[in-house]
Design a protein around this nucleic acid. Structure first.
Lengths: 387, 387
DNA sequence: ACGCCGTCAGAAACCGCTTTCGATAAACAT
DNA sequence: ATGTTTATCGAAAGCGGTTTCTGACGGCGT
C-alpha cells in the first residue's frame, strides 16, 4: 500500500480516509462504507471509525467523491444577463433564492457558470455541464432564440428551464400561467369599464412575452373587443423600452384608455414618461403591469399588476428538477404556476357597471383582422421591425 | 494498460484523454501536455493531438482535473439569507453580478453553498470550502457576530468578505466608505439648513450599520451639532424596521426635522409610515437614505440617498480576491470604495444659507455626552435592547 | 568514436474516494 | 462431521486527469 497519509494544498494538510483507516486498524474500504452507511460493517467497527472520524475532524472531499461516483451533488445554473435581465433582475433573484433553499436541503450546492475565459466562451450548455459534472441544470433568463436549446433538450442531463417551455427526455420547465395572467389583466380592465386597451410587450424572444401577448389577444376576444395591431408595441422588458413604447403610443391618432404592460419594469418606464408629459394616472391613462416586483407596491400611484408567485416558482422548480434527477423514467411535462391579480391604484374605474354584459357592447366585432396566435405574432414582429 | 476507453454516466459515454491518446498513437501524458500547453511536445504531435481533440469533441473533466491539481477553478460563495438580506436583496445581487463577470473572464465558476442537508448544517465556512475544494471564498451578507468568522480569517483559504472588515493572512475585504457616506449625508442636511437630525440604523450586527452610525456621529460633531441618543433608533435594515422606528420616533416629545436612514429600505418604510400618518415629505420631515437601490429613484418623492457603487464594488471585490489567490505573499489590506450623494426630492431646503458658518451655530455644544465610537454604540445597543 | 546535451515521449505514481468481489470465519443446518 | 449460510472485511481496480522522472534518439563538438 502506498503511503497516502496526507495531502497538501498550499501548505495545508487534509485528513483522508486513509488516515482514519490506519488509525482504526481497518481498510479504507471499510471507512468508506461507514461513511456512506453501508450495512455490511460491524457495529463496533462502525463506532470506532465514527469516533476517529470525529476526532480527526475529517471532511469528505467532494471532488474525489464526485470523480468516483460521477455524481457531484451540484446543480449547474445558467443565468443569462442580457439587458438587466440577469442576476440583477429582482424577479429571477427571488425565484433563485427559494430554489436554492429547497435544493439545499436535498444536499445540493449550486454551481453558477461564470467562466468566460477566451477558450470557453462558446461552449454549449451541455459541454459546460459535463465539464463540471453537474447532476442537473437550471436555466434562467435564456431566450427562446438561443441556439443551444435544442441540444440541451435532447441531452441526458436533467434540465429545468424557467420561463421557457423546454421539453425533452430529461428536460422540463416551469412557467407562470402567462396566458391566464394576461387574460386576467384584460378582464379586469374591462370590468373597470375599459374597452380601449393597448399592449406593450417584449421583443418576442421570450416565452412570457409571447404568452402574454396571446393572453391579451384572447382576453380581447373573450370580451368581444377588437384587436388593433397599432396598439401593440414592443417594450423590450426594460424600463427604457417601456418609456419609449409609451412615447410612440402617444403619437397615435387614436389613443387607448388603458395600457397593459407585459412587465412591471416596462410599466414603470411608461408611467414615468406619462407623468413627465403631464398626464396623471389613472385619470388620463390606466396602467396594469405583470410580475409584481417589489418596487410596484411602492410607486405612487401603486401599480396594479399580475403577480407571479416567485417563491412558489422557485420551490416548484426545485422539486421538478429533483424529480428529473431521481426518477429517470417519468416523462416530464412541465409545471405552470398560477398568477393572481393584485389591484392597486393605477386603474381607473370608468363605470360602475360590473355586469359582464359589457361583452356585448358595440365594440364587438369579429373583424377580418386575423386573431390566431401566429398571426398575432406576425403582426407584432412586423411592427417591431419597423422601428 | 487497463482499458479506459469510455466512461458512463447514466448511459452516456464521455471521451477521455485516453481515447485521444489511442487515436493519436501517443500516451495520455502527452495528450495532457498538449492540452495544458506544456512546451515539451513536438510541433507535429501537438497538431495531431489537437486535431483529434477537436474531432472527438473532447471536453476536459474539471472534477478529475481538480482532484489531480487541487485547484478547482471555482470560487465558493456564502450568501447569508437572513431577513430578506440575502440573494433577494437587490443590493447584493448587483455586486454579485459584476463580481461574477470579472471572476468569469479569469476562468472561474461560482459555487454557491446551498447544501443544508441535516448532517451539514453546522459545518463551518472552512470545512465546506475544503469539502468543495474551492480556490477562494466570497462572503456576502455575513454578520459581524458570526462565530465562524474568526476561523476563516485565520485559515489559508483566500477569502474576501464584503461589508465586513475581515482581515487575515489570506483574507481581505471590501466595503463602501460608510463613515464618509454618513458624514456626507449629515453635511448635506446641514447645508440644507437642518440641525435636528435623527438616525435610524440596524441592530449593529453589521459593519455598515456600525460605520454609518459612526459617520453620523462624526458628521454631527463636525458641524457642531449635539448628539442626542434618543434620536438614534434601530431599524434592522428592513422596511418594517424602518417603519417601526419611525413610529417610535413620532412619539418623541422633541422631534427632529430630518432623518438619516442607514439603508434605503428602512427609509422607504419610514416614508411609508409618515405618509400614512398624513405627513408630507419633505415639508414635514426630510429624509435621506443610504444605498441607492433602484427603487429609490422611482419613489415619489424620489429618495435622496448615498449611493454605493455596486458595480464597482463587485469588480473590485473580484480583483482583490484574484490577488489573494494568485499572490500568496502580498499581505491584504482591504479595499474601500467611495460613495456619492445623490440629491433627489426628499430633503427640504430650510434656508438658502449655504455658507458653512453654520458650523458655528448656537447648537454647538461639547457636552458631557460621550461621543467616541464605542460609547455611541453602547447607547444604541441599550436603546435597542429596551424595546 | 565518444561523451554530452537537448528534444520528445511515455511509464507510472499519484489525487481521495467508491465499489465489486472474493476471502475468512463463525454460525447454522443436516 | 460436513456442507451452507451469514456477517464482516479488504484487495484492487477504477474515476479522468497531472506530473515527475527516466529513457531513447539524434545531433554536435572534439
Amino acid at each position: 500500500m502506498p503511503s497516502r497519509e496526507t495531502c497538501w494544498k498550499k501548505g495545508f494538510s487534509l485528513t483522508t480516509i486513509y488516515d482514519i483507516a490506519k488509525r482504526a486498524g481497518v481498510s479504507s474500504a471499510t471507512v468508506s462504507k461507514v461513511l456512506n452507511g453501508y450495512p455490511d460493517v460491524n457495529r463496533e467497527t462502525r463506532a470506532r471509525v465514527e469516533a476517529i472520524t470525529q476526532e480527526l475532524g475529517y471532511k469528505q472531499n467532494a471532488v474525489a467523491r464526485g470523480l468516483a461516483t460521477k455524481r457531484s451533488m451540484t446543480i449547474g445554473v445558467f443565468f443569462r444577463d442580457h439587458a438587466n435581465s440577469g442576476l440583477r433582475h429582482p424577479f429571477f433573484a427571488d425565484v433563485l433564492a427559494s430554489f436554492k433553499d429547497v435544493i439545499g436541503v436535498a444536499g445540493y450546492d449550486l454551481l453558477f457558470f461564470a467562466n468566460n475565459a477566451p477558450d470557453n466562451v462558446h461552449s454549449g450548455y451541455e459541454d459546460r455541464a459535463r465539464h463540471r459534472n453537474v447532476d442537473g441544470l437550471l436555466l434562467l433568463g435564456v431566450w427562446r432564440t438561443d441556439p443551444g436549446l435544442e441540444a440541451i433538450s435532447r441531452s441526458s442531463i436533467p434540465c429545468l428551464s424557467v420561463d421557457l417551455d423546454l421539453l425533452g427526455p430529461r428536460a422540463s420547465y416551469l412557467v407562470s400561467d402567462n396566458v391566464d395572467g394576461a387574460k386576467k389583466a384584460v378582464d379586469y380592465l374591462v370590468q373597470c369599464g375599459h374597452t380601449r386597451i393597448a399592449f406593450v410587450g417584449d421583443r418576442f424572444s421570450t416565452k412570457p412575452g409571447h404568452d402574454r401577448l396571446v393572453g391579451y389577444q384572447q382576453g380581447l376576444e373573450h370580451n368581444g373587443l377588437l384587436f388593433r395591431h397599432e396598439w401593440v408595441l414592443d417594450g423590450d422588458f426594460t424600463e427604457e423600452g417601456g418609456r419609449f413604447a409609451m412615447e410612440r403610443m402617444l403619437e397615435l391618432p387614436d389613443l387607448p384608455t388603458a395600457i397593459f404592460f407585459a412587465g412591471d419594469m416596462m410599466a414603470i418606464g411608461g408611467m414615468e414618461l406619462l407623468k413627465q408629459r403631464g398626464y396623471v394616472i389613472p385619470e388620463d391613462f390606466s396602467i396594469i403591469g405583470f410580475d409584481d416586483i417589489v418596487m410596484s407596491s411602492h410607486l405612487s400611484p401603486a401599480l396594479t399588476t399580475i403577480r407571479q408567485k416567485r417563491g412558489e416558482m422557485g420551490t416548484r422548480a426545485a422539486q421538478e428538477l429533483l424529480e428529473l434527477i431521481h426518477k429517470p423514467g417519468k416523462p416530464p411535462s412541465g409545471v405552470v404556476v398560477d398568477v393572481e391579480l393584485v389591484a392597486r391604484e393605477t386603474v381607473r374605474i370608468v363605470c360602475a357597471d360590473s355586469s359582464s354584459s359589457l361583452a356585448s357592447s358595440d365594440f364587438f366585432e369579429k373583424s377580418g383582422q386575423a386573431c390566431d396566435v401566429d398571426a398575432v405574432e406576425q403582426v407584432c414582429v412586423t411592427h417591431s421591425a419597423e422601428e
